[in-house]
Amino acid sequence: MVLVFVETENGKVRKAALEAVYYGYLTAQKLGTSCQALLLGNAEDATSLGLYGATLVHQNDSLGFNFFDNQVFSAAIAQAAKKLEASVIVLSHSSNGKSLIGNIAYLLDAGSVSAAIDIPNTDNGFSVRKGVFSSKALVNIDILTNVKVVSVLGNSLQINVVGSNAEIQQLTLDVLQPGIKVLSVDKLQSNVTPLPEAERVVSGGRGLKGPENWGIVEELADVLHATTACSRPVSDADWRPHHEHVGQTGIAIRPNLYIAIGISGAIQHLAGVNNSKTIVVINKDPEAPFFKSANYGVVGDLFDVVPKLTEAIKNLNA
């Protein structure tokens, strides 16, 4: 059985969790087994996990899952995997998923691969594909153990409806006492799609000259229903909040559309964004290295070009 750990946010299933369930479903199809989901806590839309391939949702809503403690969650997921005799455990490659994968794999004496971009090849073993060297190369890794743990990189596969609403079953688990105390959680307003999940991202660099000029970036993001991001010098100068920084030391993303405005495209920036499916680069410097990685390039003054693009998209939508 393939068991998928489902992440939630504000009492709802996260998009990354739907992708993980669909990945689990495709993997289970290949292995000739079923895909089931594990929900720790509550989600009002948990039955919808069935649409993406979970035949059953196991739930434990102990108070211990109200905040994220790596040890508590890892122990519970490993325990559930043993109890339900799961052979493959699928996680989302989110900040929590990245924290959990090594811990769960150790507890299950399992081999693990994080940030998978494709369903496993099971022709000869169990081989998982991922990007390496900051997406300059790809690797196929064989997991040699009976139990396998895989995390799925966001926006790696297009989810489809393959089933109907799933039944929810309570699962008894021994929940550990937490070893940490979460004092506060500071989040963006909930109507903004977090960067790792965003399908469209509009990103600004030093070319914008100052934080007071971000209006044109935000207006373009608005008409595209995109999330805003920025380059490292911009977050270092505090023009934009730290969590908007995409690139090697910031967040790595792979949206369908990445629009880079006034960003030259240093290799450290590219490392975090060059997996985006379509890249648009707007820069007045025709020598900007970013153009080499772009699908569409506009050499021009961003203060002219960006409002025109916003207008053009508005007209297209009208």
Partner: peptide, 9 residues
């Protein structure tokens, strides 16, 4: 994702 947690340990 989109924020920070403050933790005592």
């Amino acid at each position: 994702e989109g924020g920070t947690e403050t933790i005592q340990v």
